[in-house]
Structures are given as C-alpha cells and as structure tokens.
Design a protein around this nucleic acid. Structure first.
Ligand SMILES: [Mn+2]
Length: 508
DNA sequence: AAACCGTATAAAT
DNA sequence: TATACGGTTT
C-alpha cells in the first residue's frame, strides 16, 4: 500500500534515470517486489504447490541487467511480520484464500482464463521462494540479506549508513523512512524514476518549504499507510494542509476533535507508535551481527524525548524495554540466521530444503549433495537431522552454513491447510524459537493438477539459453560517459554488506 | 473545481 | 504495489 497518493505528488522531482548512472555503486533491491512480479507468470503452480522456476528466472534476468550495467546489487527480503501490520496481513490472507477458492472453482468449470486471474490474486509470496532465489543468487555471488522485519526499513538503514547508494523498489514508504535516494518503476531496459529526498522542497505539487522530516513523516501517516489507515476524507492534500497549519499530529487531532470529527479509539497511540516505527524500527546490523534500530533510540530511551502521546509508551512489564511494536527483539543468533537466509522468518526454524526443492530436477550445484536423499536416510535418520537446528548460522557472520536441511519429511501428513502459517505469537514481547514441524513448501491439496502442455516442467539451471545468456549492457546516449570508467570503484567505507564475498559466499 | 473513494486492472511468458 | 477512471463529496 505504501503512502496513499504520495508518489503522484512527487512527479515534479522524479527524474528518468538509467541504472547505469549507478555504475560501480551498491544498490539495495526490494526482493519481494521482484518476487511478486515474477510470480504472476506461474501463479497457478505456486498456488497448487507445484515446483516452478519462472519467478527465479525473472529475478535473475533483472539481476543480470543490473550486473551488466556495473551495478552491485544487494538484495533485501522481508523477514518477520510486524505486530502493527497484523490487521492488514490478515485481511490480505483472507482475500487470497477466497481468490484461491474461486480459482479452483473456475478451473473445475474449465474456465482457464478466469482461473488464472484468480490464481494471480491468490499467490502468496512465501519465505521459501525468497530462499530459492537466494540460493540462485549465491551461485552468482550476489549479496542477499533478509531483514528481521520490513525490507523497507532495512534498506533505509543501509542507505543511511552509506552502505548502498540508492534503493530500488516500488514502495513509497521509503521516503517516510527517510531513504535519501530511491529508484521507482524500473523497467526491463534499466530505466526508472529517481526520487531524491533532498529535492523535496522543490516539489511543485505541494508547498514543502519549511517542512522538516518529522512533518513529512506525519503528513505521510495522516494520508494513510500500512500501519495506520487514513481517516475518512483525509488524503494527501488535506494531510499536507493540516500539518502545514498545525505542525504536529497532536494539534491536528485536537483541531479535528474540535471540529466534531470522531476518531477511532486509540488513534493517537497508534499514530505515535507509527512515527516510532518509521524512525526506529528494528533492523539487522551486518557489522555487529545483531539487531539494532533504523535510527538509534534517544539516550535514555524513547521516554526521554519525542513523546507526543504518553500512553503510547508502555511503562511497565516486559513491554517496557522490549518495545515490541518496533518489532520484537530477538537474539543475535536468530537475527543472524534470518539475515543469512538460514532460518525461515515465519517459523524461526531452518528451511526444509528437501521440501522446498521437491520436484526440482536441477537444483543449484552447491545444494545437490544436501538434497540427495542419503540412501541411509530412513526413519532412524530423521532425529539426527533435526539436531542441526541449533546452529543455523555459523560464527563466520553472514556466510550461510546451509546446514539446515533437517526436519521430518512427512510433508504429506500435514492436512489440507494452506497459508495457515502459524507465525510467531504476536503477543510475545521477545522473539524466540519454538520447535515445530513446519515445512518450507505446502503440499498440493486435492488431486494433483496436470502440468501445462503435458510437460513436467522446466527447471532452473537446466541447460537453457534464457538463463545463461549474458545481459548486454545498455546505456541511453545522454547518460554515456557520465559514470566514470572505473567500474570497480566502490564508494563509502568498507563494510561487510556488499563485499562480493560477504553474505553468500560459500565458505570455501 | 478539487479532493477523495471505490473499483478495476496491470504486472509475467 | 501502482495507476486509471467514474462517481461523490466538500
Ligand atoms: Mn512498505
């Protein structure tokens, strides 16, 4: 959803930009936005639990385009669900469920076009799909990182730290997070629309003169965002006008009440927490290999400064220090395991590679040994495998141990529930691992659908020109020569993120 | 008029 | 996620 109507107001400061202008720079990529696009072409298979690699190929083609232009991609995926986003997630989940039922009904009736449309609405982009892409990217030595919570916040963190020069996404939330440079609407040729936060005062559609970031942020929240829906009748224009006039949301709320507007209960508390979420959400620090905040908390904690609504701050109990609305704290080892792609963020358990790659004829080379069912892997072997759970990520920082292939292989037995991910308990104040028997991929339900064209499938890393064809670098004429020829120049200080052998290098 | 709201639709091959 | 469009409200 992003910020309602924000991007339309930024047309005057968004510039057509080709990725080649980022040559030699690290750029953070919103992984889920490409996963979504890539999933449309194979939504039926994904919904029905059939192995496909179409979305992986799509992703790799985009990556190749960047590499061909000398860009150093850092792919960032979403991690655990945020408590404040639970409502939104729940309604999306319901919508997908209903769409899936309609899709199957249409398929049953032989209306394939209608079925496809519903399948497309029903696709759920699950963590295991990110895992598959990450393993494919590992082969190309492209750095990946899974955020503890929102990729938006994680990418903003990298940008604010100067670990990346720009962020590539479709989500207007980035500006609210304070991300200095964002490239939107990237097309296949590598052209997108760049928005630079510093240019904000130059916006023609709105008078942003005298707006500091706090005002911008409150304007965005007022207009409606993922964590707090807008008030009826308030869009971006009114939000802007009200913040311009009253400067902060407490005064806006006071004005609205005075005007006879009734606000939903708890609105101010939610608003305050949303502000903090955009400013201080928990993110992963690749240097310390632990959780930290997008921006450091004020010395003395949130209570020491910036409190517009006192009731938003828990004053006692475990919540007081945990501040779970920023994303519940988690142990460094867990955060590191998630970041490296070893732990499934929806279960906090290692991915079950066997389940994920079931049906894949040509898995990535570096996984083949792991995936080959050891001839001795009888029932007696199962307990031994689960023993690997504890050490999901080794001491070598972000380099994946890929050690978690364990877990039972009885994926047939889990009944016909789809999308019933029992995510961690949102009422927990601290994230901790709870043993369970979840699997990466949900088995197909009901009768197995017939593969299209009577073909089993194509698999990635099968010999196929579409995969191995190198992308030909392309730069529009006017950008030629702008970027220096030192393609290998990397700005900013040295940092583990983005070092070519950082996150995903095979430790050997 | 301007702004907002709901609905429809694209995205990928 | 985004946009486009038609209709309604202020
Ligand atoms: Mn977002």
């Amino acid at each position: 959803m992003g910020i309602n109507g924000l991007l339309q107001q930024l047309k005057s400061i968004s510039r057509q930009t080709h990725v080649s202008s980022y040559r030699g720079h690290k750029v953070a990529i919103d992984g889920y936005s490409w996963l979504h696009k890539g999933a449309y072409g194979c939504s039926r298979e994904l919904c029905e639990g059939i192995w496909v690699d179409g979305y992986v190929r799509y992703f790799l083609s985009r990556i190749d385009m960047l590499l061909g232009n000398g860009v150093i991609p850092i792919v960032v995926f979403d991690g655990c669900r945020l408590p404040m986003k639970a409502d939104e997630e729940e309604s999306r989940r319901r919508n997908r469920r209903e769409a899936l039922e309609r899709a199957r009904a249409h398929a049953e009736a032989g209306n394939l076009t209608a079925a496809t449309e519903c399948y497309q609405r029903a696709v759920d982009i699950a963590p295991w799909m990110a895992k598959v892409v990450m393993e494919a990217l590992r082969e190309r030595e492209v750095t990946c990182l899974v955020a503890p919570y929102e990729a938006d916040a994680q990418m903003s963190y990298l940008a604010l730290r100067n670990d990346v020069h720009a962020v590539l996404t479709e989500d207007s939330d980035m500006l609210a997070y304070g991300c200095p440079r964002v490239l939107y609407k990237l097309d296949r040729s590598g052209t997108g629309e760049e928005v630079v936060l510093k240019d904000l005062p130059l916006v023609r559609e709105l008078n942003m003169a005298g707006f500091d970031h706090d005002m911008l942020l409150q304007m965005c929240i007022l207009a409606g965002c993922d964590f707090l829906p807008n008030l009826a009748g308030v869009g971006i224009k009114k939000a802007h006008a009200m913040i311009r006039k009253h400067r902060d949301f407490v005064k806006v709320v006071r004005f609205l009440r005075f005007n006879g507007t009734s606000l939903p209960p708890g609105y101010e508390v939610r608003f305050q927490r949303t502000i903090w979420l955009f400013r201080h959400q928990r993110v992963y620090c690749p240097v310390t290999r632990a959780l930290t905040h997008l921006r450091p908390l004020p010395p003395g904690g949130l209570a020491a400064a910036d409190v517009l609504v006192l009731a938003a701050l828990p004053t006692e109990g475990p919540e007081r220090d945990a501040l779970p609305f920023l994303g519940p704290p988690m142990e460094a080892e867990v955060a590191a395991g998630i970041a490296a792609g070893d732990l499934d963020p929806s279960t906090l358990q290692p991915f079950n590679l066997q389940a994920i790659y079931r049906g894949c004829a040509y898995p990535p080379r570096h996984l083949r040994a792991l995936l080959l069912p050891p001839a001795s892997a009888t029932a007696a072997a199962a307990p031994a495998l689960t023993a690997t759970q504890g050490r999901a990520s080794d001491g070598a920082g972000l380099s994946g141990s890929a050690g978690g292939g364990g877990g039972g292989s009885s994926s047939q037995s889990q009944g016909p529930h789809r999308n019933h991910h029992k995510h961690y308990n949102h009422h927990q104040f601290i994230m901790s691992q709870q043993p369970n028997n979840r699997h990466g991929r949900v088995p197909a339900v009901g009768k197995p659908p017939v593969p299209p064209n009577g073909r089993i499938d194509r698999y990635f890393f099968a010999p196929n020109p579409a995969v191995s064809q190198p992308f030909r670098a392309h730069a529009p004429p006017q950008r030629r020569g702008e970027a220096g020829r030192n393609g290998e120049r990397v700005p900013g200080q040295q940092s583990p993120v983005g070092s070519r052998h950082g996150v995903h290098s095979n430790a050997g």
